[in-house]
Write a protein that binds this DNA or RNA. Structure first.
Lengths: 192, 192, 192, 192
DNA sequence: TATGAATGAGCTTTCATTCAT
DNA sequence: CATGAATGAAAGCTCATTCAT
């Protein structure tokens, strides 16, 4: 006999609304009631899907982070040579940050703010492993500078976040030429 | 001016408390009453120095941003050659981010979050002009890549913010060697 | 009657759960959802058996009160002489309060609280008639003091409630000696 | 310079409102907003005087219990002979239960309900010590039956609670004759 | 200038009840 | 008959701000 299922659409709507509202207003100015309204559900319904506001934002964070890395590694497999592999990943990341702006902005806010649980932050970090492995391989092959992955990330990946935020604020427009320049800068800063 | 009669110590204590609490708890979990308590004043006293919570955080932002740039340009004057000038500025910025952690963390949070007024953001931006001028000169002299200052900033300065946050979270320790590596990476990514 | 189709086991489970939860947490901290969970049914199912929360607690009260008096008068019939009859009833009541602790505690809470409808309270009172009749007969025969039944109840029966509550709270242990003392005290306070 | 003081009148009004509303509607149907309204303060003001709803009801309980025992022992001192001393205390208690009906009803509800913290219950119990001491003395002098104080209380004091509740419900009227009867019953049930 | 008390508005969360199956 | 999902209304509580001194 067919029982009612908790609707995945409602959950998705809640996640989307959370991202949108936190992006535009910040966590502190995003009441549960607004999230509910934007997702077209009752405030009480949120609590069928999430334990509380903290749990909601934690879970949204983890899921967006997972989507981000899934996107990044879509066309990559670990048998691709280091240089080419990095290019593939970098360009997918750039793509994500420029096309999935909502998700990317949300991550930028969470990553620079104490609104996410430490545990959830760790959880989100896990998915980045393939890139770390790539760098490790590159170091062994003498292609990548023998630096801490934090330095590599800071110089090759993180600048994209800054550029995305600037783009989003309308003060800077990233076109295809820029992107190629940015990629070259990224690669130069980590290649041996 | 009436302002002068007010105690500068109290104002400073309020600014400091705001930075500290927003850093540790986030804007959303930093009530005025806590700020007051940490600054050892009454909540009502805050309103003698600031119009409201938004005004408080705006002003703190602008002031911290000003302190940041003042620090950055301390040993710089625009008659210093481009390469040396950039090194001086970059290292002062690195110094600031690693020594004045509280202030730097506060800026990182504000810069990735909609808690600051657009107007205040603009105001904070003004003080960066000397660096932009340096880059402009460098481009004319063919020393700096002819890229948008946003790209130059993204690749040469912004990585420091990421590293600082990681350092603050305890997952990464920046030592003098790292710093030289980082500087080289920064310079390589913008020099022609 | 439609009622007959419904499962008596479910209804019983609901009644039992209500008693247990109200005893342990109080009416104010006993949500319908908890009752449902403890009875292993859906919240919606409660409404097949009871109109609403008030109706539920009312009916539980009446039924427990009925069970209490049925227990009290089990071995009594109105042809038994007054003194012996009172002893029989009193000892059954004592038995009930010490063995059927859950039910007895529930009554004690309801009887000192405005959670029960006036109508239901009246309804619950009806079943006590045989004791009132016994006392009436005893007064006529000059065996029982010519006092209001409320006074008789207050001094001969009600103390058991207090002792049960204390026993339940673990501060006092009622043994067989105590019980005989208590019975003597009860009888002394109403016999002429 | 005169600072504003937390007004004792407001606190008193809150206590009084709590007693009144819990008596009439029960704890579960007494929202903080109603208490605030009846005390003519804002809901937020309650939290200046009490930590939360539980703390409010705990403190009201303790204070009412203290008032009750203060009233009970007003005219008593421990050099008064046992029999007379008991009469004095008993009659003061009766007085309290019949004149300070609000307070007495509140205690009756709290004492038969899990709305009060165990700690607060213990705290409230302390004040009854003089009566326990009196009974102890009476037992040594062979005037009082050698029974547990719980039994003594159950038979001599607790019946008054029942009578008060009945009186309050309007089903029974306690007059001076009744009271003397009740006192005799009380004394008979504990005197040797 | 400075304060602690006070508050209205609004927050997160819960809950009795209903709905769709 | 039975259910789990869903919800509007309201609960307890917090907080930015104001008031009286």
């Amino acid at each position: 006999m067919a029982k009612l299922q908790k609707s995945i659409e409602k959950r998705n709507a809640l996640v989307k609304a959370t991202i949108n509202l936190v992006n535009n207003n910040g966590f502190h100015a995003t009441p549960m009631s607004k999230i509910a309204k934007m997702a077209n559900v009752s405030p009480a319904t949120i609590y069928l899907y999430f334990d509380n506001k903290q749990d909601l934002v934690n879970k949204v964070y983890i899921e967006v982070k997972a989507a981000y890395t899934a996107y990044a590694f879509k066309n990559y497999s670990n048998d691709i040579p280091v240089a080419k592999g990095f290019e593939i990943i970098w360009k997918r990341i750039a793509d994500f940050k420029l096309k999935e702006v909502e998700e990317a902005m949300f991550l930028a806010q969470c990553d620079n703010t104490p609104i996410i649980d430490e545990a959830s932050r760790q959880e989100g970090l896990k998915h980045l492993q393939p890139l770390l492995d790539l760098w490790e391989k590159g170091k062994k092959e003498g292609i990548i500078k023998p630096l801490s992955p934090y330095l590599l990330y800071a110089y090759s990946i993180n600048p994209l976040s800054f550029l995305m935020v600037m783009q989003q604020r309308g003060v800077f427009q990233l076109n295809q030429d820029h992107l190629e320049d940015a990629y070259q800068a990224a690669w130069n800063s980590i290649k041996k």
